[in-house]
Design a protein around this nucleic acid. Structure first.
Lengths: 297, 297
DNA sequence: TATATTTTTATACCGATAGTACAAATGAAA
DNA sequence: TTTCATTTGTACTATCGGTATAAAAATATA
C-alpha cells in the first residue's frame, strides 16, 4: 500500500475512533488528511472500502501480536491464552473496534459484512484450536461449543462491567473470571456429553490451506519446545537455546522469514550429538522444508 | 394512541421487517401506509421516534405474554422459565427485533439508544429475579452474573447455530442446552464463591416502584399458589379453584384489573372455613389492598 | 532539457435522503 | 353555516455519497 494511501487510512481511522463511522463524512476525511476527493476515490472505491482497509490492517497486527505471545511458550499453558485474550480486548478497546464493527454490520454492503463475519469466524476457530491445545484432543467434541459460549460470556461480562467501571484496569479480572467459567464448562460438557455443534463444521469454514498452515506451525513449535527442554545449562548449550529462539522469532515474528538464516542456524545446532536431540532436530528440518514449500504457494 | 397513528406504526414495522430500518425511506412509509408527509411529522417528530414507538408496543406485548406464562404456575419451576425464554426468542425472530435493535444502536440519536439500553437492562433484571425464584435466595450473590452470562451464551449459540440451520425448529434445543449450562454455572459459582458484579447494582438501575410492584406480584402469586394447593377435589372446591384462576387472570392477564370483580371473588371464597385456608385468604386480601393502592399512583 | 505519462486537485454536478414550511383542501363539531 | 383542527400536496433546504472532468502538478522517459 502507498505511503500516502496509508496516511489516509490512519487519519480516517482517527476520525472514526473519535466521531464514529457514519458521523464522519467523506469531506471530513478529505479535510483531515489533506487530499482531494479525486484522490480519495482513486484510492478507495467507496467509504466502505476504506473501512475495510482499516479493519484489515488492525486484524493483521492483532493476529501477529497474538501469535507472538506464543513464541517459545507451552501451548497448553492456559495463562498464555489469558494473556492473548487480554491483549485482544485491550487492542479492541483502543481502536473502538466493536462500535465500528457494529456500525458496519447494519449497512447494506454485503461484501464488507461477509468480510467481518469471516473475521469473527476466524476468531472462533482460533479460540477453538487454542482450547484443543489447552484441554487436549479428548475434549475436542465440546470445544467448538465452548469457544462460542466463551465469546458470549466474555462479551456480556465486559459490556455490563463497563456500565459501572469505565477503566480498563479490571479487564484482567473479567478475563480471568470468564476463563474460570470456561474451564468449568469444559468439565461439565465432557461429563454430561452434551454437544450442540459438531466441531467438524469449523473445518468447512475456511479453505484447507489455513488449517494445514496452522497445524504445521503447531508441530514446529512443539518440536522446538521439546528441543529446548532437552538442553542443559552449560555455555555451549546456552548458545543452542539462543539459536532455537532466533528460529522461532524469525519464523513467527517476522513477515517473511529468511530461509537461509534458519538453515544456517539448524546447521549450527547439529554439533550436538545426543540421540533424542538428533532425532528431534531431523524432524524439525523436515517440518521446515514443508513449511517453506507451503509459504511459497 | 390514535387508530391512524397505530396503523402507521404497523405498516412501518412491516416495512422495517422486510427491508430494514435504514433502507426504508420516509417516502416508502408514506406510500405504504397512505398518509402524507405532513401527517407523518404530525405524529412523529422523526423517523427514530417512529421506531421507538414500534419498540414500545413490541416490548409491552412481550412482557405481557411472558408474565402470562407464569399465571397459576410454580415460579420455581425451571420449565416455565425455559418456556418464557423460548417465547421471547421466537417473538424476537418474528419481528426481526435484533437486527432492528442493532441498526438503531449505531445511530447518533442518544435518546433512542438510552431507551434500548434500558430495555436490555430491564431484561437482565427480569432474568435475575427469575433466577432467584428458581435457585433461591441463597444463590443470590451469583445470580446477576449468571443472568448476564446466560444472555451471552444464549445469544452466541443462536447466532452460530443459525449459520447452519435457518429453521427455528431447534430454538428449543438451544434454549435447553443453554439453560443446562446456566444451572451448572450457578453451582460452580456458589461452590467457588466467585462474584463479578454485586447484585445490589440491579436495584439502582430503576426506580424503586418497579421492584415493589414486582415483589408484590410475586407474593400474590405465591399466596394463590398455596391456596390452590390447599383445596380438595369435590364440586364446591372446584369452584374455589376456578375463582382463584379468575383472579390470577384478571390481575396479571388484563390491562386494568377490575377491583370490584376480584373483591367479589374473594368474598365467595370466604365460604370455606378451614384454618390454614382462612389465614392465607386474609393475607391475600391484605396484599390485594396494597396492590390496588400501588397501581392507583 | 523537452516531452509524455501519471497522479492529484478543484469544482461542478447527480440523485437520494431527512426534515421544514405553508397554503389549500377536507371533515366533523358547534 | 360557521369554526376549528386535521390532513394533504408540494415546494424547499441542507447534507450525504459518489461521478465527471478539465486543469495543474509531479514524475518518468527520451
Amino acid at each position: 500500500m502507498n505511503d500516502r494511501k496509508q496516511h489516509v487510512v490512519k487519519m480516517a481511522h482517527e476520525l472514526f475512533i473519535n466521531k464514529g463511522f457514519q458521523a464522519t463524512s467523506i469531506q471530513d476525511i478529505l479535510d483531515y488528511s489533506g487530499i482531494s476527493k479525486g484522490t480519495f476515490y482513486n484510492y478507495f472505491s467507496s467509504k466502505n472500502e476504506l473501512l475495510m482497509a482499516i479493519f484489515k490492517t488492525i486484524y493483521k497486527d492483532l493476529e501477529k501480536m497474538r501469535d507472538e505471545l506464543l513464541i517459545g511458550q507451552d501451548r497448553s499453558d492456559i495463562e498464555i491464552f489469558i494473556k492473548q485474550i487480554e491483549m485482544q480486548l485491550i487492542t479492541n478497546r483502543k481502536n473502538r473496534l466493536i462500535p465500528l464493527f457494529e456500525e458496519v454490520m447494519v449497512s447494506k454492503d454485503t461484501e464488507i459484512k461477509k468480510f467481518l463475519e469471516q473475521g469473527k469466524l476466524r476468531n472462533i476457530q482460533w479460540i477453538y484450536h487454542r482450547l484443543i491445545d489447552i484441554f487436549g484432543e479428548s475434549k475436542k467434541p465440546y470445544l467448538l461449543d465452548c469457544a462460542i459460549m466463551f465469546m458470549g460470556i466474555l462479551r456480556e461480562n465486559i459490556k455490563f462491567n463497563r456500565i459501572y467501571n469505565e477503566s480498563s484496569a479490571n479487564i484482567s479480572r473479567i478475563v480471568r473470571y470468564s476463563v474460570n467459567r470456561l474451564v468449568n464448562m469444559v468439565e461439565d460438557l465432557s461429563e454430561n456429553k452434551e454437544q450442540l455443534l459438531q466441531p467438524e463444521l469449523v473445518e468447512s469454514w475456511f479453505p484447507n490451506c489455513k488449517k494445514q498452515h496452522y497445524d504445521l506451525n503447531k508441530k514446529i513449535q512443539h518440536i522446538i519446545f521439546l528441543l529446548k527442554n532437552n538442553i542443559g545449562s552449560d555455555k555451549n548449550h546456552m548458545k543452542a537455546k539462543e539459536l532455537l529462539e532466533f528460529i522461532e522469532e524469525e519464523l513467527f515474528g517476522t513477515k517473511s522469514p529468511r530461509q537461509f538464516l534458519i538453515e544456517s542456524a539448524i546447521l549450527s545446532l547439529k554439533t550436538e550429538h545426543e540421540d533424542e536431540w538428533r532425532k528431534n532436530l531431523t524432524r524439525l528440518e523436515q517440518l521446515l522444508e514443508e513449511y517453506f514449500k507451503l509459504i511459497k504457494d
